[in-house]
Amino acid sequence: MADGVQEILRVTSLSAGYGALRILHDLDLTVLAGERLGIVGLNGHGKSTLFLAIAGLTGWQRGSILLNGHEVGGTRSQGPGRYTHRVVRRGLALMPQGDEIFHGLTVEEHLDSGAFTPRAWRERKPRKARILEIFPPLAKLMAVPVGRLSGGERRMVCLGRGLMADASLFLVDEPSLGLAPKIGRSVMQALMNIELGGAAMVIAEQNVSLLEGRVDRIIGMHVGKLKGEASVSLSGAARAQG
């Protein structure tokens, strides 16, 4: 790239929806390497659909999605989820709303299942250690089936699974949803503590106060369109200067 910062994700004129319903209206979004981006918006305005569209899980979609320079979008109107695994192998880790967990697997197997790409599979031991540093409560629970964990622990496992992957783009959908405020804040704090390196993270959240001042950029989302870039926080400005 011209300014030396690599683009992880470039979405251009993306529209997506389910059947006759169109939810995303022609939106553009660029995510740079090493940045944390917050997307805020009310219920039903398309935050989750944007993430699902990037993962190829919507009913149909149009428009280009470049992930690490590879086209993963395009015109697609087949059933959802046909190509998701390919997008995931290009370096996407989606942590969806609500916990998509495998009830019967233990926490350890669960983390293993996150490391699906061959490289991540080989490196899964050090990675697991790293994740236990981020989420220390998981260390005691490694042999417990995930189905028996509490909501906060499940969320940690789910995020941990995403972090196990060899991903360059983390999409986190409503990490504080359905959790007690204190636990929600601690989960968010853990997300902020993750060293991104060359990767990027996009967090969708309804509660702006959880994001304010902690992410590099906040973008609003309203009826399927991205509305203006609000509040470039200090860290982002400093990075731009430095």
Binding site: S13, G17, G59
Partner: peptide
């Protein structure tokens, strides 16, 4: 009908001139 509605919706979204 559902297929046609879906296609209509998709085609509308390809339109870039607004």
């Amino acid at each position: 009908r559902a297929w046609r509605d879906k296609k209509k919706s998709e085609n509308r979204s390809t339109r870039s001139v607004k």
